[in-house]
Structure formats: C-alpha cells, structure tokens
C-alpha cells in the first residue's frame, strides 16, 4: 500500500468523520448477522464477553486509521486478519465474509454526500477506491490462509494422535533391522511379491 499517495483533503475528512464512518461501517457488518445477535454484538463492550463484536469493531477502527495514514501492507494485514479470521469460520460464503471490505466505499460516499466540498472530493475518490480494492485483494489472501489452516489442523490432529505410535514403530524397526541393509529387505519383498 505504500505506493498509494495520500490524499490530504479526503483524508482530512475521513479523519474528521472517522467515528461516524466506523459506526456505519460496523453497522453494515452487523447486518450480516441475525437481528437478535447484531444487537448484542453492538451493545456488549466487554472484549471477553463479546469477542466477535469487539474484535471486528477494533479491527475496523484500526483499518480506517491505517488507510488514512497509508500504512504498509503488514500492518493492514494484521488488522484485516483479526476480522477475517473470525468471518472465515462463520456461516458465510467467501463473498459474504469479505463483502464488508467493499462496503467501505458505500459508507464513505454516504458520509461525504452533503459536504460543501463534495465535488472536489469526488475527484479523489478513485484513488480511495483503489486503496479499498487493495484491501480486498489482501483479504482474499488472508481468507484463503484461514481456510487452509482449518484443513491443516485436521491433518495435525491425526498426526498428534498417531505420532507416538509411528515413533514407536520406527524404534522397533530400527532395533530389529539395525544391521540390515534396507535395500535388501525391499528387494526381497519385491521378489516375494513377484513369486520369485
């Protein structure tokens, strides 16, 4: 993201309206959850009593700061990861899980609509959109990493369950065949299979 130039006037406005943008953006994510739960996710501020709501809210807040400050990809990835790690294992399709990123364009447009300098800001929007697109591309990477991790965990569990067994089998094998050339055993086995 470092290649993106900062847009001072739009940035100033984003800074000024950060809280309003954040609330609206957060509300739009909450709408993807069932109605009763959305109320809870918004209301409960204790980060341990409400890990999903508080993590997403915190992550979105720091993302907004990072966008305004044209932060590097590493920092942005960290904040995006917090949010996507949660949504990647919830009841969402991939598009559904990541839609919040693109929704930032709508939220920002709505916020600048009535501004006196709106026409000037509109010229700056393509650059802002490009940054949001950059976020979306990063989001694909993060989402896939999360999903791949889920499959890796399944494989790891199987390994943890059996690693001691394999280790033991290896030790027995090594003790038994310490002085035997493995190649001899394989070729002997092949001969037996072929009925020689």
């Amino acid at each position: 993201m470092s290649s993106l130039q900062s847009i001072r006037s739009l940035n100033e406005l984003l800074l000024e309206k950060k809280q309003a943008i954040l609330e609206k953006w957060f509300d739009s994510v909450l709408e993807t959850y069932p109605h009763d739960s959305a109320k809870f996710l918004k209301r409960q501020k204790d980060q341990f009593a409400n890990p999903v709501g508080s993590t997403i809210y915190r992550g979105m807040g720091s993302l907004l700061d990072l966008i305004v400050n044209s932060a590097d990809a590493d920092n942005i990835t960290k904040s995006l990861d917090e949010i996507i790690r949660i949504r990647a294992i919830q009841d969402f399709t991939p598009s559904h899980a990541l839609a919040f990123v693109v929704d930032l364009k709508r939220v920002v447009r709505e916020e600048i609509k009535g501004e006196t300098c709106a026409s000037q800001l509109i010229d700056e929007l393509p650059e802002f959109d490009r940054r949001v697109d950059g976020l979306l591309l990063l989001s694909f990477d993060i989402y896939m990493k999360c999903r791949e991790k889920i499959y890796e965990l399944k494989a790891n569990e199987l390994r943890n369950m059996t690693s001691k067994l394999v280790e033991r089998a290896n030790r027995i094998f090594e003790a038994k065949y310490r002085n035997v050339d493995l190649e001899d055993i394989i070729s002997q086995g092949n001969k037996t299979e072929r009925g020689e």
């Binding site: 959850y33 069932p34 009763d36 739960s37 959305a38 809870f40 996710l41 409960q44 009593a49 409400n50 890990p51 999903v52 919830q90 009841d91």
Partner: peptide, 12 residues
C-alpha cells in the same frame, strides 16, 4: 450471551 457457541457463531 454466556454460551461460547453463541458468542462464536452469532446464531440465536
């Protein structure tokens, strides 16, 4: 809102 599954899923 005390159930870990509710907190993690958001499913009422």
């Amino acid at each position: 809102d005390k159930c870990h599954f509710y907190l993690g899923t958001g499913d009422p």
